[in-house]
């Protein structure tokens, strides 16, 4: 290593190093501050999305309290938008919050395989993959080419939301027992997505059913096929 001169570092060199480090640090800090638009405690309200410990949370319930002559307290119920975990937090005046950068995109469901569920943006042809956990119960209603809303947190897909009603075909259902017309009598039926649910006895294989994706329940028969 012939280029390195072995000698003690001079005091003025040390000073310069310290100076540059400080300038760089302050510059970075300032950049961060100007880039991030910050919420204050008094901005908190129901529906606001903020970042806590790096994860996006939505405020599901909010209450302002202030004891006489005391500091304001901002009580929040928060829901982690990735895990669904909920928690209570109380904030005070002077606390600052980073807004969660979230946006939704309309995407088409392509297919699922061992690597996950694949979706495509129909205008940009961008493709994203979500894990079975992120898709959750929505997997019961996903069929090829179905349009869903994919929610992104900082460009990473975190969840999907479905239309309230979807129409799916019955691929397997044993015929109802004749004469059993008691009101409310049901039987199991399996849909094209593999999802099994209770349906009225008159439903046959090949029928198209309307399903409520909020409850997972049968709503009505849309048409008989075949």
């Amino acid at each position: 290593m012939p280029l390195l001169v072995k000698r003690p570092i001079e005091i003025d060199e040390l000073f310069l190093i310290a100076l540059f480090t400080t300038i760089f640090y302050l510059h970075q800090k300032n950049r961060q501050r100007s880039l991030i638009n910050v919420y204050e405690s008094s901005d908190l309200r129901k529906g606001l999305k903020i970042i806590i410990d790096g994860a996006p949370y939505i405020i599901t319930d909010f209450q302002f309290s202030k004891p006489g002559k005391g500091q304001a307290l901002y009580r929040c119920k928060l829901k982690n938008m990735i895990t669904g975990y909920t928690m209570d937090r109380t904030y005070r005046s002077g606390d600052k919050f980073e807004p969660a950068n979230l946006h939704e995109a309309k995407m088409q469901f392509l297919y699922n395989d061992a690597t996950g569920f694949h979706f495509m943006d129909t205008s940009t042809y961008d493709q994203v993959t979500l894990t079975p956990e992120q898709v959750g119960d929505a997997k019961n209603y996903l069929k090829d080419n179905m349009e869903v809303n994919v929610l992104f947190f900082n460009e990473t897909p975190i969840s999907i939301s479905l239309p309230t009603f979807v129409e799916l075909e019955v691929v397997k259902s044993d015929p109802g027992i004749k004469g059993d017309t008691a009101t409310g009598a049901t039987k199991p039926a399996t849909l094209e997505t593999g999802y099994t649910l209770q349906v009225p006895l008159f439903i046959e294989e090949g029928n198209i059913l309307r399903i409520d994706t909020r409850t997972g329940e049968y709503v009505e028969r849309v048409k008989t096929k075949g």
Partner: peptide
């Protein structure tokens, strides 16, 4: 403890 006082008074 002013902070704890406000919180405990409310909660």
């Amino acid at each position: 403890d002013e902070e704890r006082f406000d919180k405990d008074l409310v909660f």
